[in-house]
Amino acid sequence: MDDVELAVRPGERRALIGPNGAGKTTLFNLVAGALPVTAGRIELFGRDVTRMPSHRRAALGLTRTFQISNLFASLSVLDNCRLAVQALTAAKFAMHRPLARDAVLRARAEETLAAVGLADRAAATVRNLSHGEQRQLEIGLALAGRPRLLLLDEPTAGLSPAESAAMARLLGRLDPAITVLIIEHDMDIALEVARHVTVLHYGRVIADGTRDAVRADPTVREIYLGA
C-alpha cells in the first residue's frame, strides 16, 4: 500500500475497485487487522486501531467476508451461525452448559440464516453446501454479529449470473445503518450497492468520487474500465 488515504462516513456505501493486484484485499486485511501495519494510521469510529488485534476491532463493530469462502467446513450451518452470534457475547466462555439449550443463541442464529436465505439448510454440514449457498453463509456470518462496518470482499466471486443477481438483491436489503465497503469485480453489482467508488491501482488511489465521476475519469477508463 502506498499513501492510501480513505475516509468513509457512517452509513456510507463505498465500492473499492481496481485490477488484480491493485491491493484491494490487502487494504481490507490492514483495516481488519489481519496484516500488521508498517506505516500509517487506521481509525475506526474515531478510535486509533492501528495496533489493535483483529478480534478487538471486531468487538468494535467491524466484520468482514472473505474472497474465498472461509467457513467452518465440518460444522453444521447452524453451528457456523452460532459461532458468529456468540462471538461478541460473554456466552462464548461458558463451559458448563450445553450449547443446544441456549434458546436465545439459537433464535438469533436462525434469524441470521433466514436473512441470508439459508433457513432450510440449518442442519446441513457446510462442506456439503453449494458454492452459492456458501457465499450466502459467508455474508450471514458477517451479519450475525450485528456489525457497524462491513467489509465485503467479492461477495459474488465464482457465482453464476443468476446467483449474482440474487446476491445483489440480498446486499440491497442490508440495514442502511451499516457502513459497507465492498470489493467487487462485477461493476454492475458494485454500482448497485455503492454510490461512492474508490479506484485502486498498484496500491495507490487513482480515482475517488461518485460512480458517474469515476466512470468518466479518463485514467480509470484507460486502465480498468476500458480493458
Binding site: 487487522g33 489481519a34 478480534h55 466484520t63 460444522l75 462471538a87 443446544a100 456470518l141
Partner: peptide, 27 residues
C-alpha cells in the same frame, strides 16, 4: 459437557478456521 458447550463450539471453530474466528471477534 465442555465439548458440547459454547466454549467447545468455539474450539471447533478454531480448528476449522482461525482467520475467520479472529474476524468474528474471537481472541
Amino acid at each position: 459437557t465442555l465439548a458440547r458447550s459454547p466454549f467447545g463450539l468455539t474450539l471447533q471453530g478454531i480448528r476449522e478456521s482461525e482467520t475467520r474466528m479472529r474476524a468474528l471477534g474471537y481472541d
